[in-house]
Structure formats: C-alpha cells, structure tokens
Simulated scan of single mutants.
Amino acid sequence: MPSTPDPARRIFLENKLEQLKSLLWCCHGDGNRWFEDAGPKHLDNVLWIAAELASEAAELFQRCEGEWSTQA
C-alpha cells in the first residue's frame, strides 16, 4: 500500500471499495449464477482477490482512522 497524503489515501480507499463492490456484484449481483459454474480454481481466485481487496481497504481505513484521531 502506498504511503501517501490523506486525500490520496481517501481516493485509494474509495477505489479499493468500488473494485470490491464490482467484483462481488459480478459474482452474484443480478442473480446470474455464473459464479457457481466457474469451477473451483476460478472461485478460489475470485475469493482470494476479494479477500485481498477487503484487507487492503481495512488496513488503509485503520491507518486513516489513526491519523484522524491524532488530528482531533
């Protein structure tokens, strides 16, 4: 994760969350159920991507939250 100023971190966090939202929507967003037919290798990889995006977003949020609490 880049060490960047606060406004850039906010944009980075928003981008990660939007990526995660789109990825999860593609998996099951409109009930198309293609996710079930993708096969175990692809399912594992998609879940791995989603987990990494969620971890990166959570880590960035915690770093930002720490900065916000020191500014208050």
Rank of each mutant, 00 (worst) to 15 (best):
W34I: 06
D30C: 13
K16R: 12
L24H: 04
K21A: 14
P40K: 04
L47Y: 11
C26W: 09
E18I: 08
S55Q: 09
D37Q: 04
L60V: 13
T70L: 10
C27P: 01
W48I: 01
P2N: 14
R33D: 12
A8F: 15
L23W: 03
P2D: 14
L23A: 03
D44S: 01
K41E: 15
G31M: 01
A50S: 01
A51D: 13
T4Q: 15
S22C: 01
A50H: 05
R10F: 00
S3F: 14
S69L: 04
E18D: 14
L23T: 05
N45H: 14
S22E: 13
Q71M: 08
S55F: 07
S22L: 04
H42K: 01
A54T: 05
E56P: 05
K16Y: 09
T70I: 06
F12C: 07
A50T: 05
L47W: 10
L60W: 07
D30I: 12
K21N: 11
L17Q: 12
Q62V: 09
E18P: 04
A38F: 13
L47S: 07
D37G: 00
T4G: 10
R9P: 00
S55V: 01
N32D: 15
F61L: 14
R33S: 08
N32A: 15
N32T: 05
K41R: 14
C26Q: 07
F61S: 10
Q19W: 11
